[in-house]
Design a protein around this nucleic acid. Sequence first.
RNA 1: GCCUGGGUGGUGGAACUGGUAGACACGCAGGACUUAAAAUCCUGUUCGCCCUAAAGCGAGUGCGGGUUCGAUUCCCGCCCCAGGUACCA
Length: 1002
Amino acid sequence: MDFVFSRFITKRMDYQFKDIEKKWQQFWAENHTFKADNQSDKPKYYVLDMFPYPSGAGLHVGHPLGYIASDIFARYKRLKGFNVLHPMGYDSFGLPAEQYAIQTGQHPAVTTAANIRRYREQLDNIGFSFDWSREVRTSDPSYYKWTQWIFMQLFNSWYNLETDKAEPVTTLIERFSREGNATVKAVADEDTPIFTAGEWNAYDEHTQQQLLLKYRLTYLKESTVNWCPALGTVLANDEVKDGFSERGGYPVEQKKMMQWSMRITAYAERLLNGLDTIDWPEPLKEMQRNWIGKSVGAMVKFPLAPASLVEESLDNIDKAIERKEQALDNAPDRKLNEQEADLADNSSLSFGEGWDEAIEVFTTRVDTIFGVSFLVIAPEHELVTQLTTPEQKAAIDAYIAQTKKKSELDRMADTKTVSGAFTGSYAINPLSGEKVPVWIADYVLAGYGTGAVMAVPSGDQRDYLFAKHFDLPVIPILDAQKDIDNQADATKEGRYINSGFINGMTYQEAIPALIQKLEELGAGRAKVNYRMRDAIFGRQRYWGEPVPVYFKDGLPHLIEEKDLPLLLPEVDKYLPTETGEPPLGRAVGWKYRPSSEKVLSSGEDLGEAYDYELSTMPGWAGSSWYWYRYMDATNEAAFAGKEAIAYWKDVDLYIGGSEHATGHLLYSRFWNKFLKDLGYVVEEEPFKKLINQGMIQGRSNFVYRVIDAEGKGTNTFVSYGLRSQYQTSAIHVDVNIVENDMLDIEKFRKFRSDFKDAEFILENGKYICGHEVEKMSKSKFNVVNPDDIIERYGADTLRMYEMFLGPLEQSKPWNTNGIEGVFKFLRKFWKLFHDDQFNFSVSDAEPTKAELKSLHKIIQKVQDDVERFSFNTSVSSFMICVNELTDLKCNKRAILEPLTIVLSPYAPHITEELWALLGHEKGTLSYAAYPQFNPDYLVEDEFAYPVSINGKTKMNLNLSLTIDQAEAEKQVLANADVQRYLDGKTPKKVIFVKGRIVNIVV
RNA sequence: GCCUGGGUGGUGGAACUGGUAGACACGCAGGACUUAAAAUCCUGUUCGCCCUAAAGCGAGUGCGGGUUCGAUUCCCGCCCCAGGUACCA
């Protein structure tokens, strides 16, 4: 009885995290402590987290890592006197909810809402200082209304290269009707024809709209998708494994499909240059640069030599080229095709058919053009059918069929296998006049550049392997190329050989000469190319934003703005239709009716009705502008009000995973630039500073089942250290019944019914589990839920422990092994304010020098750490500080009060409680002033110099910090211990670095 | 394949600009308090050699080289792991 009573007392008086945390979370919510104002005298600071996708599995311990870091930063900035905007919301459209809907028939909106409720509860438990009044959900019609609205702005815009920004399509139409399109410098489809003002004005509405679509920033484009005939649907890349669907294992093939695209390539140069103006991790910027992939080179046309000509002498071809050269003189690039066509007609007698066609390649090494020994085009290239000769047809068809099974990633990743097929046709090298065979091979991708490459085996390893494999010539082109018999040499050194008119020139001389020649011939031009492609903006799915477009006479039209939001219709199933249309095709009577007044009282609609676009927007649509919605989350007249945007401007600090480097972060920058061009936002770049947080991986635990002589599993499990003495098989065990790799045997027996009678071979009386780092997943029994940690240790411990785990940017496995240390720290901190009976007891005595030193060390350390996002080192320093103060038995207000403020961003609940106990008004801690650092308290006059001999530390020696090199040398060499280490040898040199080290070289 | 990051004790990590490698924790071992347990506190803990001990010697930051009085840190070459690779978000 006594024992129960004393435990009760201790529990009541000791650090009671559960009561404290609940109390303050409630207080903050009720008092709207963290509501940010859109007007303030304080400077603004916008701290943003990448919002989560609310999955059915709930929040796991990996999610809050970045949120805790940003919350510490946001709280710190409030203490430093900033008006902080720190919002949270949900990226709530996505594939998993839809998958779940397919399986269970539940509407994704219902499951998503439930998941969000769960997320919110879990987030609330951690004590974040979010301004929840600004919450957004991308799947909410009041939000996606504006996603659709932005889509409409993109549709209504074109990119003017003269002003280098997006403009309304109305200005383009005006230009066309006045001067045609020859003078318009715009980003447009490659196949855009040239027309005059007269022609434009004579076109019918349909033709005009067709032509405008080639300029709009969102447009329809034929793209390749993973098509699964068995499932009747398009699959995401991660739903495809080795050419088969992940679900069901059905074959997947590459299929072309008309899809919405975003003309992000128009912004390639600005996206590239903008990187120099923002404070992001250099590797992340590098990834974006590589993704954009700017390369300066040339477009070159290789005219086709029809198969019938192949056996004829090259003389004819030379003559043909000469004539062409004359005819093409000064021809503007755009009109080349037409002129070539004319030429072909005029000279058809001598040249036969096919001269109007050419294979266009992009190359960054136009100087290697004389080394071209074949061309390779993508198997999907439009000229393949035409180029294939009857003898080669079987081989080509077989190769195309084989290619269709491979994904782009497989095609790029596989560099070991050389494969390809000869079309039977040849093209003419426009500079050498030589005919070169045209091959198809899957390493050339249709979507990259022109879908064709000129192969230079002596300069490119991939071409080299191809040439060797198919026995094609390797032509050396530079005298500096080495070892050409064994491998390609991509050098730019030396002088050209076997290279016609550039023989003897250097790289620097050859490039301009070649470009000039190609331009004279009309066979090429200098060109800047980007690896980045226009982004596909459509998914054949249900759970996404409907595209606000309907089709009339086969052409897309925007619905009227007043009809926004275009709501997701109800469907009977979340599957494609029987005819292979996306799920929206199932919506009964879902049509656009521009004039609905013709509906009869019987309900019959006599008005026009048009089909809507049936695909939905991709996952990245809603996340490409959400930070603006937070600025003014409830505005019904705009995506965010002008004043709100003018005040908050941009995100000052953005924290999120580097896995978004080339997706979300590039698309967001693109939409931001577009919105700025139209004058809706004020900053060119949305995220001024960005910090990556690492991934939290799972740490799985294993038990080892003993296998008997017959190879059958027994019911006996052997501890990790003894497993090598037996034949065993490793089995995943729930990490939640394992502590410090020690198995809780009783819980294990209840873990699975077949373990009920399990027996154990123990080491030192314990069962030790094995461990491995893997992805955190349910099936591996390694998911750790933050709620369980909070239940046991509290939110403040969780917050500090997640930071203590290591540097924010580093990926690391979750491991609760060290959490006790953090929990003990908080209890020690609590004890500083209490006497042995846990009565609150703080003295007003003057602090000592040692106490002040301890305090000011931590003031400075935390300030430095937070500003360079090194949160883990702060936690260690807090521990050191509290250990020091405990040793000093310090309970002085003058020390503990500032310390409470310094710790509050990390452990907000315990500090709020102590702040109140110190006599301050409730809730004022969040807006207290960060204590002023005074360096005077840290001044030292002596330093224990490490003395090393030849770089090896031997001893420490106390020296005054004021002495110079000569005096230090004298004192060091005079020291008896130093002399002993020198052992009679004369020092050659003494290195002295003030406040750091003494090194004696002998 | 390509792009980007990482590799330090039994474990998480520290060492900020080339200057004492292993701070701070966890774990483990030993001890104190306790009838006992929990909690708390104290001591030790990179590895190897030597030793009763004290002390000492040597090696050591993925592997192999280099620059330097001095390298976890800078340079060159390799190995392994993680993220991205355009329909996961």
